[in-house]
Design a protein around this nucleic acid. Structure first.
Lengths: 229, 229
DNA sequence: AATATAAGGTGTATTAATTACACTAAGTAA
DNA sequence: TTACTTAGTGTAATTAATACACCTTATATT
């Protein structure tokens, strides 16, 4: 316990909604909690903001501690501050989202005992989440639905080289509806941020698709150009 | 002083960016502070979140206390959490914006001694603001620029009855550029949320324009329809 | 080798939205 | 009556969005 000015009576936390794409499915990263409250429940990776950290820094640290992941670009999207959202006191939480490519390589390893484990879980099959995390997730999904129409973020979910069909799948999963193949390709290519490679998909039965790469330099020029399906 | 868990070591505040339109100018509501830090400086209306208030409730209370205004629809847009943004400790602030119609009627009267006065100030002529409030304002302006293209909020700035030229002025002020009159009218009317009245502007020299009214019922149907100039 | 399978890849016509652009009409004031 | 000022209007050209179906190609199977 320590003495503080009476206004310093609340805590601020960060919660992260990380989207990943793997095996044709949209997933999010959850942790299994190892502490009260909600011990043994699944929850979004999150924790308290440190006194000497900005919110952005804090988000990176917390994610790293709970999952082992680093160098993720996360973006703040909303702050949740209902009075009783945390059972142990007033905790206001700032929510971040990110999209990232899942390679089989990166193992998820919590660095603290605060989480038992971290795992990618299909969004179609979410368990019951602790706190108000289902609500925070729902808002995050809404956010990226709007966001993906302004293009870029879908590529962050894909491996470095990908096929157009994979891109379309990501869009369909996030938007929750089927898109027309020809129109999709026309549109996505018209943004001019994809580089066609001289290379084909490997290890697939049936005809291999051409691989593409995301061109960051060209992407930087886009601003507010919208995509509408 | 009181004893708390060591994690309760930060404070959360609200800051409000209120836009108004008056005399053909875009204005925001500022207070002149009557307390340290930044005593005698202009700042956004803002204060600490109470322990038993949600963020939204808190925003309404704070605005009311500092300006006398009530029944304002405000929307949260970003949370600012740089470590040293407040000179007296760690204070994370949740920013809200709103747009509202200025009638000469509503007097601004702070209900606490925390502010000396509240005043509408032309955004073209902003004084130096305390804290990081210039930054918070800049982000708020960016936000409504994006927002106004999805239509509705501009009408909240106007009186109940208005002319199309007034609407266009609001758009031009917010977007910071001139728009074509014919295209603007075609577009704004195509949304179908304006009702033409059987009434003309009064008290103007030169030809009086037709007055319009905003139709809330029709507006509720719009969803994600974008406006692009 | 032939065949079946499954995904890859492509084009056009229709409709809707956006942009660019300039004059006449109406009311007020002198 | 005239001068002034803002209101109000339409069309053509361009660009973007949508709807829609077939052939191609690589692999796997017989």
């Amino acid at each position: 316990m320590k003495e503080v000015l009476p206004v310093f009576n609340s805590a601020v936390s960060i919660d992260c909604v990380l989207f990943g794409f793997d095996g044709g499915e949209l997933k999010i990263l959850l942790i299994e909690r190892n502490e009260e409250p909600f011990k043994d429940w699944w929850a979004l990776p999150g924790n308290l903001v440190g006194v000497n950290e900005s919110l952005d820094q804090s988000a990176l640290r917390i994610l790293h501690e709970l999952t082992g992941l680093s160098d993720i670009y996360m973006e703040q999207y909303y702050t949740f501050g209902e009075v009783n959202r945390h059972p142990q006191g007033r905790v206001i939480t700032v929510a971040y989202y990110a999209m990232l490519r899942l390679g089989g390589d990166k193992a998820l390893k919590p660095l603290t005992s605060y989480a038992k484990r971290a795992q990618w879980i299909n969004v179609k099959d979410l368990p019951k989440l602790g706190f108000d995390h289902q609500h925070i997730f729902d808002k995050g999904l809404e956010k990226i639905k709007r966001r993906i129409k302004h293009l870029p973020i879908a590529f962050e979910l894909l491996p470095e080289k990908f096929t157009l069909t994979q891109v379309q799948h990501v869009y369909e999963l996030i938007l929750g509806k089927k898109l027309d193949k020809r129109n999709f390709r026309k549109k996505i290519l018209s943004f001019g941020v994809l580089k066609e490679l001289d290379e084909k998909q490997k290890g697939v039965s049936f005809r291999a698709a051409t691989l593409y790469k995301f061109d960051k330099r060209k992407y930087a020029k886009l601003f507010g150009k919208a995509i509408s399906f």
